[in-house]
Design a protein around this nucleic acid. Sequence first.
RNA 1: GGGGAUGUAGCUCAGUUGGUCAGAGCGCUACGUUCACAUCGUAGAAGUCGAAGGUUCGAGCCCUUUCAUCCCUACCA
Length: 880
Amino acid sequence: MRNLPTTYDPKDVEERLYTNWEAQGYFRADPDPEKKPFTIVMPPPNVTGQLHMGHALDNTMQDILIRFKRMQGYNALWQPGTDHASIATEVKVIEQLKKEGIPNKEVLGREGFLKRAWEWKEEYGGRIIKQLKKMGSSADWQRERFTMDEGCNKAVEEVFVRLYDKNWIYKGSRIINWCPVCQTSISDAEVEHEEQAGHFWHIKYPIVGEDGFVEIATTRPETMLGDTAVAVNPEDERYTDLVGKMLELPLTGRQIPVIADAYVDKEFGTGCVKITPAHDPNDFEVGKRHDLEEINILNDDATINERGGKYCGMDRYEARAQIVKDLEELGLLVRVEDHVHNVGTHDRCHTTVEPMIKPQWFVRMKEMAETCREALEDGRLTLVPERMNKIYLNWINNMRDWCISRQLWWGHRIPAYYCEDCGETVVHKGGAPAVCPKCGGTHFHQDEDTLDTWFSSALWPFSTLGWPEETEALKYFYPTDVLVTGYDIIFFWVIRMVFSGIEQTGQVPFHTVIFHGLVRDELGRKMSKSLGNGVDPLEVIEQYGADALRFTLVTGNAPGNDMRYSETKVQASRNFANKIWNASRFILMNLDEDLPETVPAEDLEAADRWILSKVNDLVRDVTDNMEKYELGLAVGKLNDFFWDEFCDWYIEMVKSRLYGEKGTSRTTALWTLKAVLRTALKLLHPYMPFITEEIFSYICPDEGSIMISDWPVYQEAWNFPAEEEEISVMKEAIRAIRNIRATMNVPPKTKATVYVVTTDAHVADIFRRGAGFFAPLSFADQVIVQEDRTGLSESAVQIPLQNGSAFIPLEQLVNLDKERARLNKEKDRLAGEIERAEKKLSNERFVSKAPANVVEEERNKVVKYNAMLQEVVTQLARLG
RNA sequence: GGGGAUGUAGCUCAGUUGGUCAGAGCGCUACGUUCACAUCGUAGAAGUCGAAGGUUCGAGCCCUUUCAUCCCUACCA
């Protein structure tokens, strides 16, 4: 125990402690009516996923809160699990098949493919969980769930049936976003917009029966194959005569009408817009209004279909080039402009998305969007930071029906069955219905589509707890308390959980959502695979330890803000861990006597009282910050307290007592060291679980694990405001002396007697009592406290105190001119302070309007600085 | 077009309800290794808190305007 290494080695302890915590069942949470629950559901990482910095940040924050609440006595459940991630996983499995020479999933068939997918999940699905454990995550792993497990599937079918029965889920042919590579529809939220340089082709459409033309402009000439009208604004005088006439659609031989629709912007382009209802969302709407034909000219892989005539079989871009060429030859191409426009791409594969009309399943959002709004506005839901409210409401205000069907195999299959006899659609949970309610038929085939992954994620807070069964866990832990997640999925996930929770359970699934930002690289760029700038958290843990990584991720970061990751930050955290280690090691080295349970208050010396008071304040402040989810502020205070107050001051102050003889003073110092360290370790534990547990086992060997120990509370017995004041006087004096010695280049080895000259009994008392540490910290061989300048020469170096002065007889080392200059500078500084304070006080409105304590403080300042100024003036006079 | 964020020391950022808040870490300068730690200590240099107005006795902190950077969102073909 006395021979701990001088540096902390995380590798030595992390795995051992984690294994033990898990074995002891400390992470488990079961319903217990005696305790209050506190629940966080873990945002389920993709089963395909590998731990990245985003996960690391997200999980660190959750673990901090869970450990904090657990120590506070809550029955803290952190509910973990993974997400099946339909597209991501399906893509991975297909990749694997390709490596084996299987060209596509159809070769295996649906059953065969799913079998492979499950095998893949069994093999790799646990990887991310293992990685989360390396972070120190104290989730209840026995409750680990998977969005596609039996229970979640039940929940999904239940919700689907309920919403369908309510008419809030419907099937319809609508224009949706189609990914030609993934061969599936995707929701609006999965579309990313990229600015791309393109062109504006101006094309002439001949007017039937006349010589004239209509000029239209388009960025996508190939879609003209599907044009069924040209639209102008009804207010546009230029084209009033045109409306109702027919145009000849070049390259196709078809005739299309000119229609009037307010959607057209007169000012933009030529004021004439080609309308392609089958391949543009706006045109689709226009088409509906004017009852236009919808001509789909594309195959699912975005090649032109048979409706495209000679262009049939060409890829969309190939067709575009050919069409432009052909138009040019026909003399119908007026001109080509460069044009930058936004192109929708699929967020998974970055393929340009193609709007297409497809029969798909939708969730009606109107009513549920309103319930989301109400939950926020009536305070049942709180978002941290508050500005997320605006973003949340912005989404709510623009919410459109949610396309939930996907043409994929890996996912929850839509529980809709079609009667083979009459074609009736029957939505049914737990497999196909026995009998068709319409015709009595008994043969059905199930809808081929699966559900958007987020449909099951939306149920996560309650499906994981057993819903739709009324389980004990559900009753006890639901609704959950806090959700921690990135602001980037507020729409994908948070809003959908909110409306699903309210709709299905009648309750908002959590009362608070804490948003964090992105972890960026040193240059502020997003970490991404394509850039190759991602930092692997596991490698950081390997090199610096999980505690250092965790500490880094929450330090100096305000909620909702992005942060930049840099290795030097981790090094700083590692250094802090090492500081904790060594301070503890120092205490252990000296802890060679049995300490009493408590120490009588009268035995506590000023320094002891001061540090106890400080740590007591720390308990209050840190707890307060953590309850407000201000983790960055809390961790900053912990760092400052431990390093500055405890290590740099208190430990230095008590060294002389520790090195001295055994007795009350030494015992009291040891007791205080231990008490403060013990408290600080507890406060630090949520942030740095490993090192604190390891040290706690040495410092408090009889107290068991720190992670299930009690969270410290503020205690009046440790409140010593007088000593806080007293020690700050001493600290100021010590700093001043050190400063002077440094500027005069006096080496620490040169000891000098420090004289404290004061007629103020209180000040004299402070320095007499504190001489034990005042002397070594101010490099003095002794401290003499007296009422006058006996034994001091005129030119002794003077340090003004509040009521008196400290003197150091270093005359031989001092250049008198320099000393005069120094004192004059000090005089000016003090005079400046006094002037500023007096100016404030002479302002009547300040005196009358500012709070009394603020005014009082200014008055005290004047008194204090005046006294110090007097000392300096006297000394200057002495030097002549 | 709409919405949001950021702008504080050379770099990365804190600053919680307006009143010692002008801060921290890294970097830099000087000095220092006998007794916890050089993954350390002591001292120091460094910022008109993007700019301009305003509210207030008092403003990085509140209001207005403005400049710069970034993100989200949107149907200008």
